[in-house]
Amino acid sequence: MSTALPLTVSGAKRLNEELARLKSVERPAVIEAIAEARAQGDLSENAEYDAARERQGFIEARIKELEGALSNSQIIDPTTLDVDDRVVFGATVKLEDLESGDTVQYQIVGDLEADIKQNLISISSPVARGLIGKSEGDVVLIRVPSGEREFEILEVSYV
């Protein structure tokens, strides 16, 4: 029995847009590239053909991955939940590192949509697991690769 993958509304939208782009733009482009490479003749030493076929494999695998994930996902909108200002899936949390005084802001998202460069952290990450269920003003101790860190939750919002 497989469990549903949690996705935020915006994450599901981004994945659907990527799927549509792969099907309507990337797939036709790689098919055209394969046809052009085939037209050059001998396929045994045709690097363009090999590269296009490899790219086609990546595109088809990503399409299959996205279709599977989207069909097995549960879209969660935190704005519709009664959470009493607690940190839940989809929440955006502003934290202060009590040692350094630095502030960071993360949104807790599903594994498929996590991207640390955009401050989107996976629900299964140590930071997210340490924050779930906590409220504004709470101090949490979170184990990170460099050791344990104390953070104060400055703000919890649901977008």
Rank of each mutant, 00 (worst) to 15 (best):
G41T: 03
L7N: 12
L95K: 02
V144S: 06
V127Y: 06
L154N: 04
L15T: 04
E17Q: 12
F89L: 10
D82W: 07
D42N: 15
V30T: 15
E26I: 04
A35K: 05
V159I: 11
E152T: 05
E113W: 03
T80Y: 08
I116M: 11
A69N: 13
S146G: 03
M1N: 12
D77I: 05
S122I: 06
V159F: 14
R21V: 05
K117V: 10
L19S: 03
L66V: 08
A37Q: 07
V144H: 03
S135T: 15
E113P: 05
I108M: 06
R62D: 11
I31N: 14
E48Q: 15
Y158H: 05
G137W: 03
N16K: 08
K23G: 01
T92M: 09
Y49L: 05
S122V: 07
T80W: 06
A35I: 02
T8Y: 10
L19W: 01
A114R: 09
E96A: 04
G147V: 01
S10M: 09
D85I: 08
V139G: 03
A4D: 13
V9D: 03
Y106H: 06
T103P: 00
E65Y: 15
V144F: 04
G110Q: 10
T79M: 07
E113I: 04
E152C: 01
R53K: 09
A20L: 02
P126A: 09
V139S: 05
E150Y: 04
I132M: 15
A29K: 04
N46L: 08
V9M: 03
L7H: 12
A114S: 14
K13Y: 08
L141K: 12
L154C: 05
A52P: 03
A114N: 10
V87S: 01
S122P: 11
A4R: 15
V156W: 05
T79R: 10
V83R: 14
E65Q: 15
E113T: 12
A39I: 06
V159S: 14
E148L: 02
I31K: 14
P78A: 08
D84V: 09
A128D: 05
R55D: 09
V87C: 01
P145L: 01
A47Y: 13
N72L: 09
I121N: 00
L141A: 12
E60A: 08
A37S: 13
S73H: 04
G130Y: 01
G147I: 01
I108N: 05
G147Y: 00
S135R: 15
E67V: 01
S122Q: 06
P78M: 07
P126N: 12
I142H: 01
S2W: 10
V104M: 13
A20W: 00
T8S: 14
L70V: 00
L141C: 07
G41Y: 03
A33T: 03
R21E: 10
V83L: 13
S100N: 04
L81V: 13
L70F: 01
R53W: 03
G90W: 05
E67N: 00
A37T: 07
I116F: 11
L95H: 01
P78F: 07
V140Q: 01
S10T: 14
R53G: 02
R55N: 13
I123M: 14
L120T: 07
T80G: 12
R129D: 08
